[in-house]
Design a protein around this nucleic acid. Structure first.
Lengths: 236, 236
DNA sequence: TTGACTAAATCAAACGATTGATTTAATATT
DNA sequence: AATATTAAATCAATCGTTTGATTTAGTCAA
């Protein structure tokens, strides 16, 4: 009953504090490095108490790992259904190469839209990329939860398309090489925006990128019309 | 009194202290982030006094920028001659497409060898990539000194090969997309090594990567049908 | 050859501020 | 009473930077 003048500072909304910390962690750890963010930065942005980090996550490092798991959940929420669908089709319907290519491109488009078109992606991509450069304990979480499933799915498609075993070394390498163009348009965003004199990645820019990536995939996967002998004579 | 044989560690060896700090800065800033490295880390590794950072570079940030300039110098030392040669050929000899493609692949091979095959590259690539993710003042230095020249050269070749203006948007996008595979094999090294169950990037691994990238370039640049004799392997 | 002088370079030590973490006491909601 | 959550104070450790003294190398007058 005291302190009736101020009703501003609220108390419990269970799990609300935890959620806010995850949010600010995603934002700040993604924007800056682990060492570039302080616990006070995190709690200030989350508008929660400094002690909440210890209370909920055991410490700064614990919060960081929780953020990594949070990223996995977020990405999985849209990637997993896609992957499941593709793998189900591959398992049950024995699609031909054209169908596989369509699956591949639609998956890449999905990836591109989420990675390039979604401002939220810059949050977790920062963490994602820093973990690639200098892996920490969070790398394992991201690898198992995101990289491995996506890569596995891509390899299955690429293997089918190139008549290679799914687990063949060449299949894996080609799969990575096919994802490369997508990656560079995200990671080198600052450079590309400057070179092309863009303000940012707007809808038109993303469409242009999508087209380039599509052309590359088509050329590499041999569906350009020319070198593929199996189902050629495909009208262009 | 000029004496170079002296082994005494605390005497003048002008510019030696500066050089050591640049070295340790390259190593540590590359391995960890700017905030992940302390001034004491830097001076300990360089085996110089703590105050030397202020004395020579004005502070930690000054050292970081000096390291960025150092990177530009290092990379330019082998990239600039290559670029000059290519641009001279383009200017004077009006090479046909196959010649352009050969120039392109040999340039990419050179890039690949320096980026993937050289353990020294991980030093500056760390800084390079972190500046892409979160640009600071160092980004301008790296952009002007490395990214712009390399990209410009690649665009000239790609423009020739695809009959597009050098400064066309599509030319630039395709150029980036062509570099993408190379980038991913460096940045996702931790992931790729794990997926392929490699220990590291040994000579055989790099050769496999080189082959994949070469095939991609060939497919994308439309030289798939031509019997291409590459008389390359002019490297050290 | 001296010895005084100077500027550059290096040093150990300490500075004030900030770090992640912890504790305490109080409060609000169930 | 139990569970969340807060503000505030405090902790040892470490941060980047600064300081004042000292060492070094080279110059120059005698």
């Amino acid at each position: 009953m005291k302190n009736t003048t101020e009703q501003n500072k609220k108390t419990h909304a269970p799990e609300e504090t935890r959620r806010r910390l995850l949010e600010s962690g995603l934002e700040l750890f993604g924007g800056y490095s682990f060492d570039g963010v302080t616990t006070r930065n995190l709690t200030d942005r989350a508008d929660v108490n400094l002690a909440s980090i210890q209370y909920y996550f055991g410490g700064k490092k614990g919060l960081y790992l929780a953020v990594a798991r949070h990223i996995v959940d977020q990405v999985s929420s849209w990637a997993s259904p896609q992957i499941s669908t593709i793998e189900k089709i591959l398992r049950d319907q024995d699609p031909d190469k054209r169908a596989c290519f369509d699956l591949f491109t639609s998956f890449m488009d999905e990836l591109l839209n989420h990675v390039l078109g979604n401002p939220e992606s810059t949050r977790w991509m920062g963490i994602f990329l820093r973990e690639q450069i200098k892996p920490t304990a969070a790398f394992d979480i991201l690898y198992e939860g995101i990289m491995a499933p996506i890569n596995c799915c891509v390899c299955k498609l690429v293997g089918k398309l190139l008549d290679l075993p799914e687990l063949d070394e060449e299949t894996k390498l080609k799969s990575y090489a096919l994802i490369g163009p997508l990656l560079i348009f995200h990671i080198s965003r600052a450079e590309i925006v400057r070179t092309l004199d863009w303000e940012e990645y707007d809808a038109a820019a993303i469409e242009a990128v999508r087209k380039v990536i599509h052309d590359h995939s088509k050329a590499v996967l041999g569906l350009d019309g020319a070198p593929l002998k199996l189902e050629q004579s495909h009208r262009k």
